[in-house]
Amino acid sequence: MRIGFGVTALANGMDGNGVDGIGNVTRELMLRLARQSDLNIVPYVYAEQPPASMPNASGVGRFGPQALFALAAGRPFPEMQRRLCERVDLVHATDHFVPRLRDVPVLATLMDAIPLAHPEWVSYRFKRLKNELWRRSVRWADHLVTISDFSRQEIVRWFGVAEERVSVVPLGVDGRWFERPTAEARDRVRRAYCLPDRFFVFIGTLQPRKNLELLIAAHGALPIGTRHELPLIVIGRNGWGCNALVARLRAGEHAQVRWLEYVADEDLPALLGLASVMVFPSLYEGFGLPVLEAFAAGVPVIASTASAVPEVAGDAALLVDSFAVTDWRDAMLALAGASSLSNTLRERGRLRARTFSWEQTASGMRAIYERML
């Protein structure tokens, strides 16, 4: 099978502020699919020429002009049709940029329906026009795949597609999160980032739906001794919509809260493994991969009851209402000590993480390719 595989989001991340979200998922899936000898993965990117980060990708022209042409004329993407379609049997649009093509089936991955369900949480220009273009372009796909049952329900609701047109293939956890870093690696990371002996950790791009304001308020409501013993370490780049919070973090206005704007990807497993508790209060997630990564690293997790997070976490995390500051404070206090609850969550978390792997994700995706062809 020759699979045209979209890598635009991955390439943009590699050439910009770093790979996260869709880019990470694209990379992990492509690595696993490429190992299968009877699959020929043909990466493509919406650009005139492939970027330096993806020299082996095929440039298929810009997405925007082709999408507007397809909407207006009811015809396929001209550049993509000419440059790619004779060389592939199926196109997998991994990153929400769904093409209209002729004689080649299209599979589209949709992680979530955030721009339609919560337009207040996206910040791009011409929001209404782009959201409508996205809604219509999704209908060009022959089949859709998403990452959780929650996201499937959201896609059916907000895109108006039939439920049978949407398959669910959960994400996986890379093996590096299960590996126990050496004492030397842990010491190096602790020194490099000036980490205390014990701390709460939050991982995620700073944006409104990540609910970091609530988390900081809950941490600030802890007894002063607990705050000093377990400061809150925030890891994630500045996204959007949090300018006031970012200014306060940079000014050090929140006592015992420290923002690490950048952590090298190779340091993340060791840093996460050093944490006492991982806190994840997000208001909306299509999946919630950081929860599984913390499970694999052997870190107890407190997570929100919102969206797909309970589906992913199962009974291996403390689940707390996303809007209840007092409940978050109490949950953080419950795990602040070396309690039997912490040990129970560690054991459950490791078991839970073992049920998700990128190899299973790749197998599920391959089965969809086979059905479509």
Rank of each mutant, 00 (worst) to 15 (best):
G160W: 08
Y193N: 12
G288P: 01
S37W: 06
A34S: 15
T344V: 02
I235R: 00
N17T: 15
E164Y: 05
A334M: 07
N243V: 13
I302E: 01
A313N: 09
A34G: 04
A334H: 02
V234H: 04
R258Y: 12
P105M: 09
G61M: 13
L249F: 02
R27I: 03
G18D: 04
P290G: 08
V98W: 01
Y284L: 14
S137R: 03
V169Q: 09
K210P: 00
D327A: 15
E28P: 00
R176T: 10
V257N: 05
T355A: 09
P55G: 10
N211L: 03
D265G: 02
Q49S: 15
V299C: 01
G6I: 03
R227F: 08
G61C: 13
L195N: 13
E179I: 07
G175T: 13
T8M: 02
D20F: 15
E164N: 14
D327M: 05
I41T: 05
H219C: 11
R209D: 04
S37C: 05
L333Q: 14
R157H: 15
I235T: 05
A316T: 01
V42T: 10
E285G: 09
V7F: 02
L318K: 00
P99V: 12
G23S: 06
F5H: 06
L268V: 12
V279G: 10
A34T: 10
L283Q: 04
Q66W: 13
V60D: 07
K127I: 07
V312E: 11
F150E: 03
I3Q: 05
V263L: 08
R348V: 02
K130Y: 11
L29V: 15
V309Y: 13
N131K: 05
Y193R: 11
L318N: 00
A317F: 03
G74D: 09
L373S: 14
R237A: 13
I368S: 07
T326M: 04
D315S: 14
P208E: 03
